[in-house]
Design a binder for these strands. Sequence first.
DNA 1: CCTTTGCTGTTTATGCCGTACACGTAGTAT
DNA 2: ATACTACGTGTACGGCATAAACAGCAAAGG
Lengths: 283, 283
Amino acid sequence: MAKGRAGDPDHGLELLWRGREREPRPGLSLGRIVRAAIELADAEGLPGLSMRKVADRLGFTTMSLYRHVPGRDQLVDLMVDDVMGEHPDDVPDAAGWRARLEGAARQAWRIRRRHPWLAEVRGTRHLPGPNGVAQYEYMLSTLTGTALTPSEVIAVVGLVGRFVDAEALHLLETQREERRSGVSEEEWWGSRDTLYDRLDRYPTITYLWTAGGWDAPEDSFEFGLRRLLDGVEVLIEQRDEKRDESLVCEECGRPLEPAASGRPRVYCSRACRQRAYRKRKPG
Amino acid sequence: MAKGRAGDPDHGLELLWRGREREPRPGLSLGRIVRAAIELADAEGLPGLSMRKVADRLGFTTMSLYRHVPGRDQLVDLMVDDVMGEHPDDVPDAAGWRARLEGAARQAWRIRRRHPWLAEVRGTRHLPGPNGVAQYEYMLSTLTGTALTPSEVIAVVGLVGRFVDAEALHLLETQREERRSGVSEEEWWGSRDTLYDRLDRYPTITYLWTAGGWDAPEDSFEFGLRRLLDGVEVLIEQRDEKRDESLVCEECGRPLEPAASGRPRVYCSRACRQRAYRKRKPG
DNA sequence: CCTTTGCTGTTTATGCCGTACACGTAGTAT
DNA sequence: ATACTACGTGTACGGCATAAACAGCAAAGG
């Protein structure tokens, strides 16, 4: 079943887009392996995910997994798409690109809170499964109604996606080191006296320190998301202006005044509109 | 010399902040190890960096390194700070927070282009060395002149830093997979026909595809940096307005009109100013 | 019925990795 | 001369992914 060797992307795709399987049979199966692997990664993170441990958890030998999954990388691909489908309808159907994009970002963030290892998945050639594509499709769709160009829409979605990943990764690492060492981040940094002695020479750091900048830090996801959306909004407003500027009358080609109402204008005057209508229905 | 065992942060700090060493002696030394490790990581990335390979490159045995470096993690810390000091004066001394912050981000980006593995360094408890602190200090200083609160200054710098890292990581992974497989990213995705067959069902993706959105993609670093800075600018403008609003006369407490010139106002009227001056020099 | 075929899981082995530990050796201070 | 220290080596352990050969078993074909 996993005979396509590890290097074959098409085989990986097949596994990702396989339909629901009839699972009542005993023994190993792709679905069971993926679910065990997700549990393991939830508990120990991606570096802690090993074929041995997955197999142990299922009560089989390591190599038995390779009968079903081409290799570790493909297993991770499968885990990703599985998890992406967990809460498909948590996204509120808000109005306006900003609310919708923000909702999608929060949805991605929520999934990453539940499965922090998602942010640790590296590599740019991960084949998307049905759930991943659905999310991507949704994020893109939040922006296609705006004046952004297609490549800008794609760039914004990529930017937001990488932002969420970066924040999730940051959070994950914090929590992991806290668990591993049993010392909270604050405590650990707090006891680095030999470091602070050296930092006295730096005026800005010293100023921000005494001003309490580190005492009540911003929530970095909330803060960053807002900045990002503000930045996108600035671009969209620019494009809106440009679009109005560049609109020309469809009949005579003269530039149009920006429309006062939301309805976009097409002709510069009643005369042009009537001329156009007359052409459309000849006779 | 590296007797402090691997778990001791203070010993790591000592190594990071050690001064210039008198190096003429033959044999191993911290500096030589760090430089060899950087060369190796430049060529093969962080995952390709192993103690064995570093030792081989220097013509010593693996374990000899442990006489000078507590362990692999600390070696990476040392590499990071070494590299951060490579071009300390490439940052133009521009005016205005935006140009200065942008310059710092580009400097960080330039270093990551030269040493892509920097973006692969994970973990939140990396001790900063002198060069890392200097860069952090500079980035913070670009914003302390604005109306942002201390915690906002810190949040912005963190956001920009993580953005640069995320973009660098993305680029690195693209390039690595291209080199490893000998197939360019475009080519690889181009031959995933079995994938595109499935994507036809998704209208937004299909629309953006036919509209050529993927034909000439945005430069994701340039695009993202601009959005981010725009977003920060929006916040700073908000704070500026608030600051003007919330300013009150130091003498009578009545709200002040926003200052027309750049010079901030302190008193609401000449009468108040004179009253204040009279109090200041009694008699 | 028996045999063949193919699916499933196991065993064994290879080559990486970080690093603990015990050991030698050479130079220096007493 | 002796003791101590810094430096480098060799061996070994436990972990990782996975290649290759092999064993059991069930369904299919004669």
